[in-house]
């Protein structure tokens, strides 16, 4: 497995990618570039230079500046429209020619570092439903809602454009109902649910393989072949997530995982702390997500899930699940059976 990963302070994002888009949007809103670049080491002339790289932390700072300076409820949604397919060279070409939703999402997930450096997308099948859910990569807690809005609007906007029709996405948010609900309604649609455990967008799995009008398999493989292998890396947290997801049934320890990452347990702990999290929280998140998938896909009861995840008994699992998500599995099942509003 490829364990190359980036952290919040790693400077690897070309400034002429996302940062240049933010600058262009700031200009279109008649905002001074100083207001956008405040508090970063960047200058306007750097943005279009080919060798300037920014870190996810810089990117977050730019977003925070833009949000504060424009003070408009639609900023995240408008930025989302610009971000995908974006102007990222071959990766954008590949997205533009994607033959189907599945292929587009596959590119998005594989090249997360370039396309969505702050938030890691994951695709899971919950029964007949395809669920695209997002986990933190490098986010300061106050900005999560903004970045989630932005990335969901980016994917919804791109897929609507490339499919030539609005896809029947249903959205769930790990946040309370926002006061600017109208922006959600217009940019994402009416199928919204708040106070959910996941930040996710889902649709019937049949849509994944419906051919898209501009699709060209040859163009996609040619474009992807030209993308450097180094761009396939994921964030530290996303890499950890994928690693734990594969081994969720044995619940690896911090020591085992840090050995696999090739660093000491102490260093690994420090890296996680720098991202505002710790090992147990990440493991619990993965186990909670797997539980949701087991409930949706197989309709497992507590006994079966406990056995699958390697718990001693159902009670033990029930208590743990409550600790992970704040809900007992039965309350969650009840919530899931209610139609979304």
């Amino acid at each position: 497995m490829n364990l190359a990963y980036y952290q919040a302070g790693t400077r690897f994002i070309p400034a002429r990618h996302q940062a240049a888009l933010l600058l262009e949007y700031a200009h279109s809103q008649e905002l001074d570039s100083d207001a956008l670049l405040r508090g970063t080491h960047l200058f306007e002339r750097d943005m279009l230079a080919t060798d300037t790289r920014i870190s996810p932390a810089d990117y977050l700072r730019l977003l925070a500046n833009l949000k504060a300076a424009l003070n408009a409820a639609d900023t995240s949604f408008m930025l989302g429209q610009l971000l995908l397919p974006g102007h990222y060279g071959n990766l954008s070409h590949a997205l533009l020619q994607a033959g189907s939703l599945r292929q587009a999402l596959d590119i998005l997930i594989t090249y997360q570092a370039a396309l969505s450096p702050l938030l890691a997308p994951h695709l899971a099948m919950h029964g007949d439903t395809a669920v695209l859910y997002w986990t933190d990569s490098c986010i300061a807690s106050g900005q999560r809602a903004f970045v989630v809005e932005m990335m969901m609007a980016a994917v919804a906007g791109m897929t609507r454009w490339l499919a030539g029709e609005r896809l029947p996405w249903q959205f769930r948010f790990n946040r309370t109902r926002p006061s600017h609900i109208e922006q959600y309604a217009v940019h994402l649609g009416s199928a919204l649910r708040f106070d959910d455990y996941l930040d996710a967008m889902s649709l019937p799995a049949a849509w994944l393989d419906k051919p898209w009008p501009r699709g060209s398999a040859m163009a996609v493989s040619a474009a992807l072949a030209a993308v450097p292998e180094a761009e396939r890396c994921r964030s530290l947290l996303a890499t950890l997530y994928d690693y734990l997801l594969e081994r969720v049934r044995v619940a690896p320890t911090l020591e085992q995982v840090s050995a696999a990452f090739g660093i000491s347990a102490a260093t690994f702990k420090r890296h996680l702390a720098a991202h505002g999290t710790h090992f147990q929280a990440e493991l619990d998140q993965v186990r909670a997500h797997v539980t949701l998938q087991l409930i949706h896909t197989h309709g497992y009861g507590n006994e079966q899930i406990a056995a699958w995840l390697g718990f001693h008994d159902a009670n033990n699992f029930r208590r743990s699940f409550k600790r992970w998500t704040g809900l007992t599995p039965s309350v969650l099942r009840e919530k899931l059976s209610q139609p979304g509003t």
Partner: peptide
Amino acid sequence: LVCRYAGDR
């Protein structure tokens, strides 16, 4: 009364 609801609505 005309309002901009959101986006193009």
